[in-house]
Write a protein that binds this DNA or RNA. Structure first.
Lengths: 360, 360
DNA sequence: TTGAAAGCGGTACCAA
DNA sequence: TTGGTACCGCTTTCAA
């Protein structure tokens, strides 16, 4: 008869020893606990616990013996139980969307790497189209995560509710207007200025912009900074069409730019690389133009395919690895010391000259 | 003085009421528990618990009152504590690698969607280069996940250790030779046969293959099936070079194929789309060949960029969404009923004709 | 329907 | 260094 927990009923009551319900013996085998190990090793349960704690006080002899016995019995500490008492789940929620884009998977990958380095696991909340956030937030709370990395838009109220529960949040490449929050971003303004400067220096004067969706802070920054810089150069007429950050909208975007003015612009500034790629393809295959001879196209992000020989996109590459590293540092600091004030870290992007634009 | 737990020390012992250590009052505010709600509502703690349990017996009146008070107090049930007693974490471990590839992010995205639909959260284990698995496995165990989805190679021993702990595992697009396991795969053999048949029918006779890394089961299946089918047609000479599933190795692969034989093959069968894209670019930009007029190129997967006008890869698209759905169904069934026997589901891929190959 | 009490599997404090 | 004990916050019998 398989042993059950040893402190359930006073022994006198053990008489009617009938299995309560026909237990399907296959699956119901309970896992080995520290109590089991303790009994087998002839030590207390707390001793076992200490043997598995890095700094725990236990003689080398006992430690070795207990760990060996634990190993034999197939014991693994229960992280859930530990979290309950330590109030530390070692879980970090990553709120992310557009996992099918080219950019976010790289972000997630880097976040995961750096999280592991800090001994944290990632609880993934992949939101379909940045929606459903409220219900998701509730889930995040329930799991008692140590912290949150938000690569999606959050409302002020949502941020507040995390703060109320003392759960630190770090935004990735976005932030909240008028509310001090932790954030790690790539400097879009500077990137846009560099691109425009080099394009202007090459003699380009007619600019078109393929923007991202209105609700993308990053996208809007890129577009505004581009236009602002052009204005500084005295270029006032800038045609803008809107896309959705995807290939097709980049492709459609160029055709729309053609319709807006009588003539096509000399440059298409696209709010991300994927649209730039779509735009390049539209130029070549739809409009039979040469890139960059007849049209310069630039993007943002520096995603993998932007380096393919077929496109060689001129772009501002985000230092995603560094950004992820900074994100985790920021977050872990806040977890260790909840009193720290909000902080933004703005990392510079890097110009990748590519071959899709003539630069001066 | 903030209330602490109300059952710590016999009252007689409360005299030396000095704060133990200077508690940094800022962050240490404990979250609201069901006890707090119970006290405020004037009901028992277990009643509160029942009010939050879907089938729990509680009068409608009480349920409503308790939930309202809970809402006011900002109470959220603690999933960690719940898991401890229910032995159900509602956590599924996803073991995955190559998140920077074009294929796996889509997989992860779909898995996440379907997991949510089943009320499960994803605990992400993104492995750098399919390595470090053993240590990772230990982490998976510690978190008491309900089940595991493995999109990486696991050893027989690793699978065994999950089985010993009654944690169901479903493989995604891979499995273990000679060990019965749960798996959802796309039919590579059939896909390869279809491609070869259509290529042969178009009159192609000289075939080259750019294979994936040796340790990729899927890659090897594609290559073997391709060669086997060619043999059936009497084509015996098939040049094979190896790549690493990335763009550069596809590009290099074509050049190597050129060196192997005196003449380039008429077809390059690539073990995935990204290599096919690299191969197409090598043909066009390195060797100045036209695709598909001078060289037919085919791939596997049907990743997003394979549909771009610049490449329009002829490929076998995997039904990733369906596969993810099947994976979760399989897994949830095993979680609910650990006795179920291992099962493999093989889904058919879909030929995308594209424009990178002449088909008959 | 409700409340009391016994855990779930650990950690941490305390005294020995 | 060790063992004893009181919890972490919840679910689940069991009586009332």
């Amino acid at each position: 008869m398989p042993r059950r927990k040893n402190r359930r009923v006073p022994d006198t009551f053990n008489a009617p020893a009938v299995a309560p319900i026909a237990v399907p013996d296959s699956g119901a085998r309970h896992p080995v606990t520290s109590h089991d190990v303790a009994r087998r090793a002839g030590v207390s349960q707390s001793a076992v616990s200490r043997c598995f704690k890095p700094g725990g006080s236990a003689s080398a002899k006992m430690r070795e013996r207990v760990r060996r016995i634990a190993e034999e019995m197939g014991y693994t500490p229960n992280a859930i139980a530990r979290s309950l008492i330590t109030r530390r789940s070692n879980l970090i929620a990553v709120l992310i969307s557009n996992l099918t884009s080219l950019y976010y998977p790289e972000v997630l990958s880097e976040l995961s790497n750096h999280a592991s380095a800090h001994g944290e696991r990632i609880l993934l909340f992949a939101l379909p189209q940045e929606s459903d956030v409220d219900q998701t937030i509730d889930q995040v709370m329930q799991y008692q995560v140590d912290g949150v990395i938000a690569a999606v838009r959050l409302s002020r109220e949502q941020v507040e509710s995390f703060k109320r529960r003392n759960i630190p949040v770090v935004f990735f490449n976005r932030y909240l207007q008028d509310v001090p929050v932790n954030a790690v971003c790539c400097d879009q303004v500077d990137g846009a200025r560099i691109l425009v400067s080099r394009l202007y220096a090459a003699g380009h004067r007619r600019f078109g912009v393929i923007a991202g969706p209105k609700d993308s802070v990053v996208g809007e920054e890129r577009v505004h900074a581009t236009i602002a810089r052009l204005n500084e150069y005295g270029v006032r007429q800038v045609q803008v069409v809107r896309g959705g950050f995807d290939y097709e909208s980049g492709r459609r975007g160029l055709r729309e730019l053609g319709k807006l003015a009588q003539r096509l612009p000399q440059v298409a500034v696209c709010a991300n690389d994927v649209m730039a790629i779509g735009c390049i393809d539209a130029a070549r295959y739809d409009l039979k133009l040469r890139v960059p001879e007849d049209l310069s196209v630039v993007g943002f992000d520096g995603v993998g395919p932007s380096t393919w020989e077929s496109h060689r996109v001129t772009t501002i590459r985000q230092p995603v690895g560094r950004m992820a590293e900074a994100t985790l540092t920021l977050l872990m600091d806040r977890i260790a010391n909840p009193g720290l004030p909000p902080e933004k870290r703005i990392l510079a992007g890097q110009l990748i000259e590519g071959k899709s634009a003539r630069l001066g």
